[in-house]
Amino acid sequence: MLSYVIKRILYAIPILIGVNLITFMLFFTINTPDDMARSQLGAKRVTAEMIEAWKVDKGYDKPLFINEKAEGLAVVTDTLFVKESLKLFTFDFGFSDANRNIGEDIKERMVPSLAIALPTFMIALVTNISLALLLVLFRGSALDTSMMVVAVMIMSVSGLFYIIAGQVIFSKMWHWVPISGYASGWEGVKFVILPVLIGVFSGIGAGVRWYRSIFLEQINQDYVRTARAKGLSELKVLFGHVLGNGMLPILTGVVVVIPQLFMGSLIMESFFGIPGLGSYTIDAINAQDFAIVKAMVFLGSVLYIVGLILTDISYTLFDPRVKLGA
């Protein structure tokens, strides 16, 4: 397995270089270093000298991909792309254009993002799977049909609606929890309850339908009939056998998402005042802060690749037939 993981990590290097290349090209097609300087220096009284000084200070005075003034290897290496990309591969994200250490900011913002994303993910997983198994138990009944209609209705409504409705009902009308805010430790529980519940509820429709379809594929298999023939109750059949055998497709969709939880949720965090990573990239794009944009795109790509590797590894845990690298 180790050789497989190493091979996948090596595969990741050209992918990350490619992602980085696209980020550079897209960003600098829209924003020139002069635009970035103006954005950072403010709208008033920006002179050419100030722009030049800013570019030199931040390293944006260098050419993007080819340095025609340099000689030898420096034609390629003494460029913005190479200088900035190499640092990323050592996870040195450097400083934002507003002079903040990006690595520190990411570390600080990851925790609040996880405080929302992790419980939402866990509770949603358990709730959705349990509800899906319940519907499989009552398959074909009025309960199953009506729940499927409700699931489609839940899916059809925008997540933003649930957030605003949740804030209005639970905080403004019933005064149960704060509308927004964040605190660490136990003090943070009251701030996290509502976004987590809304996150779970808004995902129930899609989640339950998906898991239900996976379990329905299993329910008529021979091994289920054998389990019933042994005299097992339906609950034991569902949770002990159907769930286990349905894990492979579930893992495909679920494990890949786990590393992405660090990246947070833009809308949820914005509306609930959660100081997470959700809006970090968007704020940086609006502020034309390339240092943050490239760091976040790189990190997102790394986490996605990690997710895919974890998914492959998790297959071997749930299905002994799967052998990585074989």
Partner: peptide, 18 residues
């Protein structure tokens, strides 16, 4: 000074006295 990105929660919290 607390981070409040959206105007709707900001307004509602003002009305609640927060």
């Amino acid at each position: 000074y607390s981070l409040e990105k959206e105007s709707i929660p900001l307004w509602n919290k003002f009305l609640q006295g927060y």
